[in-house]
Amino acid sequence: MSNQTGSDDLYVGCKAYNGTDTSYGYIPSGAAGSAFCVLFGVSMVAHIVQFCWKRTWWCSVFAVGCFVELLGWAARKWSADCPYNSTAFLIQISTLIIAPVFFTAGIYILLGRYIQIFGKETSFLTPKLYLWIFCTCDVISLVIQAAGGGIASSESDDPNGNTDPGTNTMVAGIVFQLISISVFVYCGTDFFLRIKRFGQLKMFTRGPLAALTSAMILSVVCIYIRSIYRTIELAQGWTGYLITHESYFIGLDGVMMIIAVGVFNVCHPGWLLPSKAEISLPQYQKTSTNSDVEMG
Rank of each mutant, 00 (worst) to 15 (best):
R197V: 04
G166H: 00
T287V: 04
T167Q: 13
H47R: 10
L193W: 11
L129K: 11
S280I: 02
M170I: 15
I144R: 03
H47A: 07
Y130R: 00
N162V: 09
T167P: 00
S154L: 07
A63D: 10
R76C: 11
P159N: 09
W271Y: 12
I232T: 09
K77T: 12
C267G: 02
T231C: 11
L10C: 02
I179A: 14
I174S: 03
S23N: 11
G240W: 08
Y84D: 04
V68Q: 03
A88K: 06
I144D: 04
V45M: 10
G296M: 03
E69W: 03
F192K: 03
A146K: 03
V171A: 06
I107V: 14
E278L: 00
G149S: 10
S60G: 12
K77V: 02
Q4S: 14
N290Q: 14
Y248S: 08
I223N: 02
V293C: 09
T5V: 12
G148M: 07
Y11L: 13
T95C: 11
C14Q: 08
V139W: 07
Y224D: 08
N290W: 09
G199F: 03
Y108L: 07
L252F: 15
F62S: 02
Y229V: 06
L218Q: 05
T136R: 04
T95N: 11
C82Y: 10
A172W: 06
C187G: 00
A215E: 05
S180T: 15
I250E: 13
E294I: 04
N168G: 12
W58H: 10
I117C: 04
I259G: 02
V64N: 01
K202V: 01
F198Q: 12
T163I: 12
L111F: 02
F51R: 03
M203N: 15
S141P: 01
C267L: 08
L234M: 14
G270E: 07
G148D: 02
G161N: 10
G33L: 06
G149P: 06
S182M: 12
A277Y: 02
G72S: 01
W58Y: 13
W58V: 08
T20A: 11
E69R: 02
F184T: 00
G166C: 10
L272F: 06
H245C: 04
V12G: 01
